[in-house]
Write a protein that binds this DNA or RNA. Structure first.
Lengths: 341, 341
DNA sequence: TAGAAAAACTAAACGGTTTTAGCAAATTAA
DNA sequence: TTAATTTGCTAAAACCGTTTAGTTTTTCTA
């Protein structure tokens, strides 16, 4: 039917040059001394024919795309999905779209994806990096492609970063449990060398030491199947009967942890108190409601976009200081971690 | 540092024509009788220089982009996020990326987004359409742009569609409650004229009639704030003291519903039985576990991609039959809907 | 050894925009 | 009246590939 119309078509129909149209469209009519009459004529024609410039051609020419690449571990994860949504909203207001993808923490896939983005002239990247993409990030920095790391970072590379103080997050959780009178506080985490996980672990250890308590740590292989995870947690709790409370290092672990507790017929918080790292909408209506270390989602997303945009507008000096923003998590105390009087 | 290298550069360096390189890159070397020797030479050079074709230029010329536009109501919603992830995975295997955006059920924003996608030569669209974009869809069909509707559809427009039998979903839920001996079964839904919502309502009504029971329906404005929703549900349940069970039409309503039940100090399932529409990972570990009407996520995503790809490869006749795939939901029975013996 | 056929490769157009440099006509200044 | 300036607009290159329609070179046939 109605074929896509190009600037060329307009130029032909109106018997003027393509250049003129471009100037008018880009608000340079005045500057380039195009007469008001002609400007109006073109604008009217464009309106009538419902012309839309071809974004690809624009990108090819300008090198800009008005697209931001979002590279997260797993878009189906509640935390990442929420951040994605908030970022999308904020970016949209500035006229930017988001392309996203899930890395599955696979460095090869991640690098491939970043390259794809590159070849599409993506203007900026927000990345939750898996181990193994360090050199790719160095390339990006050398090419001065704007990017921000998120959720975790590489200490050995100086980059922009936005995240929370994970060490502090664990600390406030454990301190709260200690305050409540719990003695044997366990930490169930993933066998991961990502900074956010290491920090959560470090925070646990510090707070445990501070409280004069004993460490109970269960590290679960990243690759374990869900049923396996449940089994491992159940075994762990059975082996250490004296554990009276647990901090789960991620939402996913909390989920499997609850399954394990059900299996062992342990009640929260009477038999065992529970805190989750990362809050979840459903935690509020659990029975009992679940105490959680909450990341400030809105604040995180805003900072991510802001840092990225600053970086994008700063193509000048590559030797600049990097921006690192570390926000404070908040402990949302609910019944699951309260000692019954 | 290392500037991006183009085909032109390679042609110059190797002293051959650009065309030759293009043929080799596009696997037409044999067909175009480029000698194996030259083919190897070019491939080696490309490998060495780490050359990547500019995807924009490719798209501009070919009209293809290897990108699929995913237009969902809200990417932060667990259901959409999960589907997004599954779609992404499947599309990725076929060499396609996803661009997504959230419509917030705003037709103006949605149309704007679709246009953006168009101007980027997106190859296909998966859309959960809000009311008000009917004519835009008609335009798309006229331009024979491949798209599939998802989750809901427009009865008056003949398009491809993938979703579940929502009517049946409500029915199996209500029948189950009737079987369990519940007498006064309520339905809490959104005041929406989208097909999936209407069908869920219709299914409820049919099954209630079938069971010879009485209707208790609460329709909540789409725009209501969360606290308001809790309040409305609480009021509704207080007003109708005889209600002994509820089917929540969406996950979001279930969430607020649980809050309302907590507020009223009603226990599940003793005081009131509960079923949610759309399952959620956390439902399994709720106390008690929550019965849910589950959509076959994997099956849905696979069909979405398959239908879309068939459509994309079928640019021939515009007057083709449309494909409608309606899958069966499954009732996952858990303790929240079981009458205590 | 001419003529035909196959092999190996290429020029140039195309896609749609932005941008630089510049031209012709109208106006102003001297 | 002529030169300088301003006004209003445009040609063409650039971005970076793909594809059509060749051309040239080599090999084979009669």
């Amino acid at each position: 039917m109605k074929q896509k119309i190009s600037m060329n078509d307009i130029a032909q129909d109106l018997n003027i040059s393509i250049t003129t149209i471009s100037f008018i469209l880009n608000g340079k009519a005045k500057e380039m001394r195009i007469s008001d009459k002609l400007t109006k004529k073109v604008l009217d024609y464009i309106e009538e024919k419902n012309y839309n410039p071809n974004a690809l051609a624009q990108s090819l020419r300008t090198g800009k795309s008005k697209i931001i690449g979002l590279v997260v571990e797993d878009i189906a994860d509640a935390f990442f999905a929420s951040v994605a949504r908030l970022i999308e909203e904020r970016a949209y207001k500035k006229g930017y779209k988001i392309i996203y993808c899930s890395t599955e923490d696979n460095p090869k896939k991640t690098i491939e994806l970043i390259r794809m983005f590159k070849s599409r002239n993506v203007d900026g990247y927000i990345i939750t990096p898996p181990k193994g993409i360090e050199s790719e990030l160095r390339f990006m920095r050398n090419d001065s492609l704007p990017f921000v790391l998120f959720d975790r970072y590489f200490p050995e590379i100086d980059t922009d970063y936005v995240g929370i103080d994970n060490l502090e997050g664990s600390k406030i959780a454990i301190r709260h449990l200690v305050d409540q009178g719990f003695k044997n506080i366990a930490f169930v985490t993933l066998d991961s060398d990502q900074t956010q996980m290491k920090d959560r672990m470090a925070g646990y250890r510090l707070a445990i030491k501070e409280g004069g308590a004993k460490e109970y740590i269960l590290e679960i292989k990243f690759t374990s199947k869900p049923e396996k995870v449940v089994q491992l947690i159940a075994n762990f709790l059975t082996k250490h009967k004296d554990i009276d409370s647990v901090l789960f290092a991620t939402n996913y672990l909390a989920l499997q942890g609850f399954a394990a507790l059900n299996k062992l017929k342990l009640t929260i918080p009477e038999d065992i108190a529970v805190i989750g790292f990362d809050d979840h909408a459903f935690f509020e209506v659990f029975n009992p409601p679940i105490t959680a270390v909450a990341q400030p989602m809105k604040n995180l997303s805003e900072n991510l976009i802001d840092v990225l945009f600053t970086n994008m507008n700063n193509e000048s000096q590559p030797g600049q200081e990097s921006t690192k923003i570390v926000l404070n998590p908040e402990l949302i105390v609910r019944a699951s971690s309260l000692r019954k009087k």
